[in-house]
Design a binder for these strands. Structure first.
Lengths: 224, 224
DNA sequence: TTGTCAACTGTCAGTCGCTGTCACTAGCCT
DNA sequence: AGGCTAGTGACAGCGACTGACAGTTGACAA
């Protein structure tokens, strides 16, 4: 239903031409991410990237619409997997549970899929760059809002409501994704591993209900 | 507590120099917004703007960090008023009510404050440009996340919790702001007036609880 | 009033992201 | 083997933005 444009570890590679294309594309991707992680996003010029891969600048822009697209290649992959996971949830499940379940379930698939493209550790470093670079954070949030739209449509379909007249799918997804981003953000500020993010995310999701409840009880809702 | 850099309708204007400065600043702001509304954001170059005001490009960049900053001058104003409104809510009020109350309450103040800078109608047109221009939408979302951070701190202070250890303030604010953005977004797609946005926002907020509830009931939650 | 200082502004040159054009190389197919 | 064309590099150009330098003009004191 969607061509993600997998980079490595898929498709048998037919002709020489296509093989070479994939090679330069891969090289551009890897070099870009490594440079972003090392020098930062703004500190990396397109000229730096193409110099490392020995290609002309023009070629870079034939493969990617811009620096930004390179930075979000891996996140795009992860998003598609999440959407698929929600789509594959048991039909009877309440919407909130479906989202939470899909999140927990898709985690390992995502890690695996990412690893086939670039080392997971590199991706995590790039992710922190994304969260800490204003321009990239902005792009990340816009992408997130597009993801929310996709998720809302899936939820709406599951529940048999029209997403254009019933606001509940979008409202639910917006709230959930908002909470997820809070978790991502506070995680990226620290330096813990993937497992920590997973736990932080689900823990925060479980606190959404109580946080909305009228007066906050005084139990320690501490985390971190 | 915060200098917002009001543009028109405040401060008696001391010397001639300052008066002239404000004049060119105002002119740049007005011309920019009018051009954005007329030709779109990307369709408007800085050269277009400075040509309309008869100043050099360099001058434009001395007053504003870039095109983006001009576009968000008015939203920035509104955000500050909202934060102040939350801060001024009665201490005993539960956090969710405080946010909802502040929102309803600050509405008129915001409209009034905006009108003192540019015609409200112009701002609304520019707002639709923001929502429909990818680059501006991204910037808008990033600014929103900064607003969320400010709001979360206010809520944390009101509730007497530490925002760095208790995630509930951020979670609550993220959910609420997420819902608000859903309302803004679906409003900006249509062509109704300010009053419609106000009602849509509060209506959506009231649907947050039910949308999170386990199975969705079949009452018509229709809007629009 | 006049002269000095500092603020404000314009001009110019340059960087970086990105796009259009055009010629050319090298896989691909017959 | 030879033509076709996808993929590429080299080059020119645009728009956002920045730094350096010089000119202009309010502000303020003598």
């Amino acid at each position: 239903m969607e061509t993600v444009g997998t980079v490595a570890g898929a498709a048998p590679a037919t002709g020489l031409r296509e093989r070479r294309k994939r090679l330069t594309r891969d090289a551009l991707l890897r070099s870009s991410l490594e440079l972003f992680a090392a020098r930062g996003y703004e500190g990396t010029t397109v000229d730096d990237i193409v110099a490392a891969v020995h290609v002309s600048q023009r070629t870079f822009f034939r493969y990617f619409a811009g620096k930004e697209e390179v930075a979000f290649h891996v996140p795009r992959l992860a998003e598609s997997l999440l959407v698929d996971a929600v789509r594959g949830r048991p039909p009877g499940e309440p919407p909130l549970d479906a989202l939470r379940g899909a999140l927990r379930e898709s985690w390992d698939d995502i890690a695996e899929a990412v690893e086939q493209v670039v080392p997971l550790e590199l991706h995590l470093r790039v992710y922190r760059v994304i969260e800490s670079t204003p321009a990239l954070l902005a792009a990340h949030l816009r992408r997130s809002s597009e993801l929310e739209e996709r998720l809302a449509r899936v939820i709406a379909e599951r529940e048999g409501v029209d997403p254009d007249t019933d606001p509940r799918p979008r409202i639910l997804v917006a709230a959930v994704c908002g909470v997820i981003r809070v978790a991502e953000r506070s995680w990226s500020a620290g330096d813990s591993g993937l497992a920590a993010l997973r736990e932080l995310t689900t823990a925060h999701l479980d606190r959404l209900g109580p946080a909305l409840a009228e007066p906050w009880s005084d139990d320690r809702h501490t985390s971190r």
